[in-house]
Design a binder for these strands. Sequence first.
DNA 1: TATATACCCTACCATTACAGTCAGGATTAC
DNA 2: GTAATCCTGACTGTAATGGTAGGGTATATA
Lengths: 165, 165
Amino acid sequence: MRLTTKGRYAVTAMLDLALHADNGPISLAGISKRQEISLSYLEQLFSKLRQNDLVSSVRGPGGGYRLSRSSDEIFVAQIVDAVNESIDATNCGGTGSCRNGEICLTHHLWCDLSDQIHDFLSGISLASLVARKDIQEVSERLDKEEALQKAEADSMQRISASSLG
Amino acid sequence: MRLTTKGRYAVTAMLDLALHADNGPISLAGISKRQEISLSYLEQLFSKLRQNDLVSSVRGPGGGYRLSRSSDEIFVAQIVDAVNESIDATNCGGTGSCRNGEICLTHHLWCDLSDQIHDFLSGISLASLVARKDIQEVSERLDKEEALQKAEADSMQRISASSLG
DNA sequence: TATATACCCTACCATTACAGTCAGGATTAC
DNA sequence: GTAATCCTGACTGTAATGGTAGGGTATATA
């Protein structure tokens, strides 16, 4: 079973995209700042997300990423599947060759667990996450934080520009 | 989320114990043969299982391990918890310090998932696994295989003994 | 047309964990 | 006493994760 920072980052980034869907294409730089995820790492993740047709990209200045479809048609399971190889809880990858070519004692149990997890995450759309109050609160906090940092950066630049001029 | 061969092996071994509960203490050597798990590795796992009071040990010849309570009072979640550090799906270990000391955007989602998995595995006792037909069939296959190998080994020893005498 | 912004891609690397080995002990039935 | 068994700790190869580095390529805007 593989559910690590990789899958979590991917879902977080996609949720960020869904939350800011109204602002046109969203740059990875923005996501990187808001969610504190390394930009290069995000690029790797979004490469896979694009290959799996979950996002589409716009190049050039003002560019960024967009969800490839409506947020109620994108589910957490799809995102995790896209960046992790599988969300399979078995050791054999579901093939049933876990003990010397045949199934092991606990094969069926892990199959059941896999189904359970998959069903759960398949039922959660980005739209349903966006609608959650606890998530909206966190999102607002991060947006404010980013705006604050941007204001600081701008003011620094103004000072530096005025000292030059 | 950590669910790897380690946790799977532990559950498999405990299930083996439950299936052979009538035969007195079960040696790790036997489990190792039947389930094809390295003996040294099993020893490490059982050290943790013992610390978590899931099994009790009997030393000396004829010794081995026993379930520390009835198989309907031991649940899969407890076993996985005992050998893995946690079955937590969050990155922060549930503390909510996932993004710079505060919670990240997807914290609540991973908490929900953790609960989901934990509830599922907490509801499955060793007894309920032992009762499953598909598991009984696998178990019979492994027992036969072991008996066959033992018979072969014995016959080899007889030949070797007779050639010596 | 120059330039800055942003996506895109490949190779590389440090750390960590897993899965397993090895070597030696301690305990106890026979 | 000897063999079977549990018990413990140190060690190791491999693979994955999480991340860095350094190049590209496309395109909006001045």
